[in-house]
Design a protein around this nucleic acid. Structure first.
Lengths: 242, 242
DNA sequence: GCATCCCTATGTCATACGTTAATGCGAAAG
DNA sequence: CTTTCGCATTAACGTATGACATAGGGATGC
């Protein structure tokens, strides 16, 4: 019954893929259909509750929040296998907007039908919880990065994150990966200004750590990059209660 | 079967309260027990996968991450009704540490037994998804605040958040609320230095917006505070399943 | 061909914030 | 009563980052 996304070994995502259907009846029940989003277009704009849930079948994008004064915060990146719209489906509004940075193909299903399957298949409910927890984990990491690290480490962190996911998805060829973002997107993710992000990227280039040209990014020194990005989390002083 | 926490109108939390048991057999099945955490002590230290899940019955605390160089990032605050340990229960490790800032009473249950009820009660599965989504909503908000706003607005945001939750829980008396945190905690939440947080609080005091003494905080000018905090502070409301 | 647009690149200057250090103050300890 | 400790408070100074300005490089269109 559960159809796992072939493109998503990373998140083990239990999604419904309309193209490799195993259970046509279930898909009919869920009213699954395909949605295409062109680069620059948005799909689930913030403010409104969402009657639909989506799974990313292909393409890349990002979710961001637009603030009162025009400031923008990118929450995270979207890659094939990601499951979006949960907030909008469960809360009264989904607090952010989904924007495509490449042509993105989504698998769409209806909220009401989707949650109905919880009753039929508890394992899927657990999978959804797992997804939400992964998301939470990432956001905590992002919070720590933005809150505590200097610009160069933030940028390195973002690149390492994207690389890691791209690798797991088979989108990256070794240390070269697709990078269909503008520097403004990176800046808005990391809480930096565009100019400073640019300068930081220049520094990374001068240090011969990464090279970025034309929607593709190459990591020339993975060791250095991960040293910059990764030293963050360390086991805390442990005082076991149990 | 579901026993809702009397203390938690805000999150409508579907928790098991061992003190108002309606279903003794279920509680036995879940091996529920009570856990007390003294101020300063920690539970669920980061790094280890957690075999237990907790619900906060009373007291306050926070979750934070400790980083390599000793830096600390507070992820969020904990109040009665909060459900913790989901990441540790679902992922291989829970990325942060839970720390009590007052004496905290927790309701503990075993991971394996807990998830088993998904099969028996799909509504509870939906509730857990709802909880995770609320968490996600908050983290996105925090990310935008830390990433984009200046110090004074960050502090105002944090205070407004806590006030809102305390109000909903009946912990606040009008514009006076418990505030059992050190300024360091606030600083680590907001990605600011201790000193700068202090100065910002002093500014807010001079502006006659908030006064803070002895674990209690009084909002003297709610209008001003909310104007500073931004309209972002809307609570995550629940969306009925049907 | 030129013009326009969007984005990247780089320099100069301004400032919000971090760092260090010293002071004070109440609570707990001896 | 004095000491110590944890935490709040302020001041002086340094710096990472933001703001502004300008130029350059492809694209796309006429």
């Amino acid at each position: 019954m559960a159809v796992h996304c072939a493109e998503c070994p990373l998140r083990r995502l239990p999604i419904f893929d309309p193209f490799s259907a195993e259970d046509v009846a279930l898909m009919e029940e869920l009213k699954i259909r395909e949605t295409v989003v062109e680069p620059g277009a948005t799909v689930l704009d913030q403010g409104s509750p969402a009657p639909y849930l989506f799974t990313v079948l292909s393409g890349m994008g990002l979710r961001h929040v637009r603030m009162a004064d025009g400031k923008r915060q990118v929450i995270n990146f979207l890659m094939p296998g990601d499951f979006i719209g949960l907030q909008g489906a469960v809360l009264e509004d989904m607090g952010h907007t989904i924007e495509a940075t490449t042509r993105m193909v989504l698998c769409t299903f209806r909220r009401d039908r989707f949650f109905r399957i919880f009753a039929q298949n508890p394992q899927r409910a657990y999978d959804v919880v797992w997804l939400a927890a992964s998301e939470e984990h990432f956001l905590g990491d992002a919070l720590a990065t933005i809150g505590q690290l200097p610009a160069i480490e933030r940028v390195a962190w973002a690149i390492a994150q994207i690389h890691q996911r791209a690798l797991a998805l088979g989108l990256a060829l070794g240390d070269t990966m697709p990078f269909p973002y503008r520097q403004q997107d990176l800046a808005d993710l990391l809480g930096l200004s565009l100019v400073h992000t640019n300068k930081t990227l220049a520094r990374l280039r001068e240090m011969d750590i990464v090279v970025w040209r034309n929607d593709a990014l190459h990591i020339r020194d993975p060791g250095q990059l991960h040293r910059l990005a990764g030293a963050e989390i360390e086991p805390a002083r442990n005082r076991p209660l149990l």
